[in-house]
C-alpha cells in the first residue's frame, strides 16, 4: 500500500528512535528492520534516512560510533542517547493521543480502543 508522504515525515523520527531503542544499528539495517516490522508499508528511502540520522545526532538524540564488521568494512553504528529516550517517550505519547483521536473520528469508539 502506498502511503502519503506527508503522513510519514513527522513520524519517521519516532520510528527511527524506536528502532534504536532496541539496539544499536547501522543505516542499512534500519531500513531492513523497518520494512520487515511494518510488513513493507514503510519503505524508507535511504536518501532520506541519512540526513535524518545526522540531524538526530546533532540534536543529541542519538550518537554514532564506528565498528569494524567481519568483512573488514567499517560501519557507522547509531545508538540512542538518554535525551533521545525521553524525547521518544514524549513523542510516543503525543502520537497515541493523536492516533486515538483520528480513529475516533474515522470509525467511532470501536477503533479507539485499538
Amino acid at each position: 500500500m502506498k502511503i502519503d508522504k506527508s503522513l510519514l515525515a513527522g513520524s519517521t523520527i519516532i520510528l527511527i528512535l524506536k528502532l534504536l531503542e532496541e539496539g544499536d544499528m547501522y543505516g542499512y539495517q534500519m531500513i531492513e528492520e523497518l520494512s520487515k516490522k511494518s510488513n513493507n508499508v514503510f519503505q524508507l528511502k535511504a536518501g532520506t534516512l541519512y540526513p535524518l540520522l545526522h540531524t538526530l545526532e546533532q540534536r543529541g538524540l542519538a550518537t554514532s560510533y564506528n565498528k569494524t564488521a567481519d568483512n573488514a568494512k567499517v560501519r557507522k553504528y547509531y545508538s540512542i542517547t538518554k535525551k533521545g529516550r525521553s524525547y521518544l517517550q514524549e513523542k510516543e505519547k503525543e502520537w497515541k493521543t493523536y492516533a486515538t483521536a483520528v480513529n475516533k473520528v474515522l470509525g467511532g469508539e470501536i477503533f479507539a480502543a485499538i
Binding site: K45, A46, G47, T48, P51, H54
Partner: peptide, 17 residues
C-alpha cells in the same frame, strides 16, 4: 534508485552539515 535522487540527497545532507 532506492537511495533516491543524488541532488536531493546531497542537498538534504548539505542542510544538516
Amino acid at each position: 534508485a532506492e537511495m533516491g535522487d543524488p541532488v536531493v540527497v546531497g542537498e538534504q545532507l548539505d542542510r544538516t552539515h
